Computed example of a mutant assay.
Amino acid sequence: MTGFPKKRLGQNFLIDPNILRKIIAVISPKPEDIIVEIGSGRGALTDLLVQSGSEIHAIEIDKDLIPELQMKFGSFPNFHLWNDDALKFDLSSLSKPNSRLRIVGNIPYDITSPLIFKIFDNIAIVQDVTFLVQKEIARRITASPNSKDYGILSVLCNYFTIPKLEFIVSPHVFRPAPKVFSAVITLAIRQIDSDLEFRKMLIKTVKTAFNQRRKILSNALGIMLKERGTDDCPIDLNRRAEMLTVDEFMDLSQWFMRRESKPFSL
């Protein structure tokens, strides 16, 4: 039915005007901004974004919500509506010279990690991110080494961005109300000097290390180490992935890249 949240799409519509205003204050949209809103829902946040004068691109996968969004905002010249899957949408089609994208949205749990990785793939055209996500994910993104929440998202978000947990959001401000608390996070994109091949190696190293997070690195990275040997490794391989800082993962990834072109004997 039109306008009703769909469980299969992870829809929980934000309805509290005070929280909406707080999110807008965090985003601080400017008329010269290009803002991509992921999952516009019934347009509660969209309304405030459109009023800012920014160029708004609303991506909504639910075709039943498109007529309502078009009726509410279709007359605004700065509003553009896309009935599409954000994970498949070509973000580069919206970028302009000297104007990077600002990505915002109330993000369903199931697509939060894939969406963040999609942003990493488009890092050169993104300025920043403001997401409303489950509190659990916000804690993972902002976690420090040697904590239970520290993992793949923690390392990679801290490499590509400067993450910040802005504020916690109660379940009671959504319809339907979820069973868990949420949080607003911001990701300010870092100016990364590394090339694409290094970024691919870093992602592979981090994912492989944490896929067996309770094992020491010599075991967790077994396949990668077997291909390259272990001599001159800058990291103590008797440590676990959760103990390494972002810089240490960078050192390990650079070592892997050097070893790819260097012959070794087992």
Rank of each mutant, 00 (worst) to 15 (best):
I111G: 07
L202G: 08
V133Q: 08
Q51G: 08
P171C: 04
K96Q: 14
E136W: 12
I123C: 00
T142D: 01
T186N: 13
D85H: 11
F131V: 12
S99N: 15
K164Y: 02
L91N: 10
K30S: 13
L48R: 15
V50K: 13
I27K: 04
I116K: 09
Q51W: 06
L69G: 07
P176L: 12
R258P: 00
F167T: 01
S147Q: 14
H80N: 14
Q70N: 15
Q134N: 05
L115C: 06
A138Q: 05
Q212P: 02
S265P: 00
L217T: 07
I235N: 03
R239T: 07
K164M: 00
I162M: 08
W255V: 02
E60I: 09
S99W: 02
Q191C: 09
K226C: 00
I23W: 06
K200I: 14
I66F: 00
L49E: 07
L153A: 09
Y159P: 05
V26S: 03
K6D: 00
P77L: 00
P97N: 05
R139E: 14
R100F: 10
P29F: 10
L196W: 13
K148Q: 13
I35M: 03
K179T: 03
Y109C: 04
S170P: 10
T142K: 05
V133G: 11
Q127E: 15
M257F: 04
L217N: 05
F79H: 03
L153W: 11
I23P: 02
I61F: 14
I59L: 10
T2A: 09
E68I: 15
Q134A: 02
R8I: 11
S253K: 03
S170I: 07
K200H: 15
H57L: 08
T245H: 02
A241F: 08
R190N: 15
D110N: 13
A177L: 00
I59K: 12
L252C: 03
P108W: 08
F4K: 15
E166M: 13
L266S: 13
M243W: 02
R214G: 01
S75M: 04
P77F: 03
M71P: 00
E60Q: 08
